[in-house]
Design a protein around this nucleic acid. Structure first.
Lengths: 120, 120
DNA sequence: AGAATACATGCCTATATAGGCACGTGTCAA
DNA sequence: TTGACACGTGCCTATATAGGCATGTATTCT
């Protein structure tokens, strides 16, 4: 017998599901800019704090973000490595749309953008 | 003024959601081996035909697969290009697990820590 | 100590499936 | 023409959220 019904794999089961939710991608994108508190995220994304907390909960369950306490604030930071399974899966199809990668170019661009951030 | 409730973006809205479902990834993986009919897929994945048809419907809606008729059979083929948006989004995080970047990251963190001397 | 602040959760509602089954339609074999 | 096939869908049930609200807890401020 099968499980009678399974609406969908739970979002907490893997990165694929966690990232399927647009709001969560926004959160990750925001955290890509650096560690942030729940309140900061809520303000930036213009959503209620509980909403952010819940999404962060999901992201944390799949290890996409890590938390650090700072007084009464909870600072969340990105753990991009958890996205790797998705990337690995996509690799198989990558050839469908791209000729070649210039990884160094990407690294350099990232390096530049980070320096810009530091300059403020 | 929000939609009172939105369980989740519909799976037909984008590739992210379409791919969040494990069974659908299996289907895509199977199609990576070449064009196949619904029946062949059902047999290979050991699932009922209606199940496959429905997943294919979703995949087709987001343009992840294309269909071709051959007599009474419907041959589906992969359209990997539709996965590109996901890949593009991931690109931003790719550095997180890239070996080449690890060394770069070390340098960056060192630079950052020089000015971030405010954390406990 | 008392109040304010920053979060995490629980509860509740409406929504969006996933999969089981039955069935309608188009196509090919006899 | 009749029957077997190969599919696509509709209907039904149970499940898994997303977001709104209110509340409990821990930490910091006055």
């Amino acid at each position: 017998m099968y499980s009678p019904t399974v609406a969908r794999a739970s979002t907490t089961s893997d990165a694929f599901n966690a990232v399927a939710e647009p709001r969560r991608r926004e959160i990750l994108d925001a955290l890509a800019g650096g560690e942030q508190s729940v309140g900061e995220l809520a303000q930036r994304l213009r959503v209620a704090q509980p909403v952010v907390s819940k999404h962060l909960r999901v992201l944390r369950d799949v290890n996409l973000v890590a938390r650090r306490d700072q007084g009464r604030r909870r600072l969340y930071r990105l753990n991009g490595a958890a996205l790797r399974p998705i990337h690995e899966w996509l690799r198989r199809y990558e050839e469908s749309w791209s000729q070649a990668f210039d990884r160094m170019e990407l690294v350099l661009q990232t390096l530049e953008s980070r320096e810009e951030r530091q300059d403020g």
